[in-house]
């Protein structure tokens, strides 16, 4: 497995896309924190204010993770990959791991970078990271990024096509999960079980009415990712490359 991890690491970092993604994710997230910090008024700046922009980073990382696999299909390097390592499950798990680790790193840097930036601009004692909830809100970002990357690789493997995968990965969390609420009656219940909604409850704390606590929320989000990944692996093993 270490061999495969090394292979996928070389593959990822010898193209420009992870660098661009990291740059964009950090720039947008931290830049947004700076904007919020600079314009803040009325009451002290809080930890949560510094994290308003993390969704930018999340979406960029999601796109990057999907591209890590869809570009392999687009340029047919997936065939070279499966030729070098015919055990498709191992290859794809290694790829997912490498992408998820990178996503986690980007997430942590983005979250702490945002917090530091906001703190440097207009920090006070209220901005200290003290409680468990504070830590989850900042340090937890990396975990959510990593799990999102797993979902993105899985969707990318299933769809095999950049435009389709990216559309699904952006329209789903940004639009569909919110539109579900509009369904009278059951809508709110469905919304409670939507993966990205649940993930945000891990970060921002669950409202009392939510079905799960923060850590259970993360577990559920991870479970969704695992199911998608297993489905993707099964399909990739069955399909012609």
């Amino acid at each position: 497995m270490t061999t495969l991890l090394a292979t996928e690491r070389i593959k990822l970092f010898t193209t420009r896309s992870p660098w661009w993604s990291a740059f964009l994710a950090l720039g947008l997230t931290i830049g947004f924190a700076a904007l919020v910090g600079l314009n803040h008024s009325g009451g002290p700046l809080l930890v949560e204010h510094s994290q308003f922009g993390t969704q930018f980073g999340l979406m960029v990382v999601s796109v990057m993770a999907a591209l890590a696999i869809t570009t392999e299909y687009r340029f047919a390097t997936i065939r070279a990959t499966f030729q070098a390592v015919p055990k498709r499950t191992s290859v794809l798990v290694a790829k997912t791991a490498v992408v998820a680790i990178l996503a986690a790193v980007i997430g942590e840097v983005a979250a702490f970078g945002s917090w530091l930036t906001a703190y440097a601009i207009d920090g006070g004692p209220e901005m200290a990271i003290t409680t468990g909830a504070d830590w989850r809100m900042v340090a937890g970002v990396g975990l959510v990024f990593a799990v999102t990357a797993v979902i993105a690789v899985a969707v990318g493997t299933l769809v095999r096509q950049s435009a389709g995968a990216i559309s699904i990965l952006l329209i789903w969390p940004l639009l569909v999960e919110n539109l579900v609420v509009l369904i009278p009656g059951v809508g709110a219940n469905i919304h409670d079980w939507m993966p990205f909604t649940v993930a945000s409850r891990f970060l921002n704390g669950a409202e009392p009415i939510a079905p799960m606590g923060p850590w259970a929320s993360l577990a559920y989000f991870t479970g969704v990712a695992a199911v998608l990944l297993v489905a993707a692996l099964a399909v990739a093993n069955k399909r012609d490359a």
């Binding site: 904007l35 308003f52 969704q55 930018f56 869809t70 990216i166 559309s167 952006l170 940004l174």
Partner: peptide, 27 residues
């Protein structure tokens, strides 16, 4: 470029416009 264009359009329309409102004062 497909990936870039689709990502920019969707992130902008579905996320950026909403998040801008969160910027205090000028948002």
């Amino acid at each position: 470029q497909t990936a870039g264009a689709v990502a920019v359009l969707l992130v902008y329309a579905l996320l950026v416009e909403g998040l801008v409102g969160l910027i205090p004062k000028i948002g």
